[in-house]
Nucleic acid binder design. Structure first.
Lengths: 127, 127
DNA sequence: CCCAAATTACGATAAATTTCGTAATAAAAA
DNA sequence: TTTTTATTACGAAATTTATCGTAATTTGGG
């Protein structure tokens, strides 16, 4: 196996993970109501997706009560790290510098944020 | 329509675009041989995918000869811009700074590259 | 205890993606 | 010209993802 399945969320799965990362843990209804704000989708669709995610190991759940409580089994940071790396490799010839420059160039970044990044760079160089 | 289809390449389509961006233009065989280096896949599969990409408008092709010559119809830069933006929104709460720090933190970046980025930042601040 | 409301389980279907075999076509070689 | 070789076209099947209706289950209220 090249990469574990839980690091390859689909679009819909990622949307659900978003909610779980934000709320820490949530029932299907909680998640569904968040999704329903921005998406026209049925409750059982969300339920089914979350059940599948459970089978894949993408989420954990506490089933001791009628209403199961779900939680992401991958941290947001880990997912970010993995997907970012993948993007750097597939779209930026493996160069994180290229990606950084692209990211800063395309989006308007405030002076405060630029300072923050510069400070971060300075710290990196010190090591 | 929310987003044009050509900005939503699938995994396999992205692999093919990689090759086309690198080679500028290429026949199905050219592309296939590149893919075959890293992937076990049949020739007609690559062909079919490229035909579908043509129908979607993801690639252009010159069919005046028997062997059609393909070319990406989206620039690498444009695809980078779009997919990066999408990732920032879905995974980094819309903050490019967050993404940048994550990207630099996770990958070992050489002092030369760090300097390059700093220079880039300085130029950004001047405007 | 029984019922109503909410939830999960299940299964079927649809849609999109990926795969490849076979046939048709074109070009090059003999 | 005939044969061989390479390529494209076509269509079907397999796989993955997304959708939702209906049935079964659980639980809290009356």
């Amino acid at each position: 196996m090249s990469v574990a399945k839980y690091l390859k969320p689909t679009e819909s799965e990622l949307e659900i993970l978003q909610v779980l990362w934000e709320k820490q843990n949530a029932s299907v209804r909680d998640v569904h109501e968040e999704l329903a704000k921005v998406k026209d989708v049925g409750y059982t669709t969300t339920l089914k997706l979350m059940q599948i995610m459970f089978e894949k190991g993408l989420v954990k759940r506490d089933a001791s009560f009628k209403t199961h409580i779900y939680e992401a089994s991958v941290s947001k940071k880990k997912a970010q790290k993995h997907l970012l790396k993948k993007m750097i490799n597939t779209l930026f010839s493996g160069s994180s510098t290229e990606l950084v420059i692209q990211a800063l160039g395309n989006h308007k970044t405030s002076p405060e944020e630029l300072n923050e990044i510069q400070q971060f760079l300075d710290n990196l160089k010190k090591r």
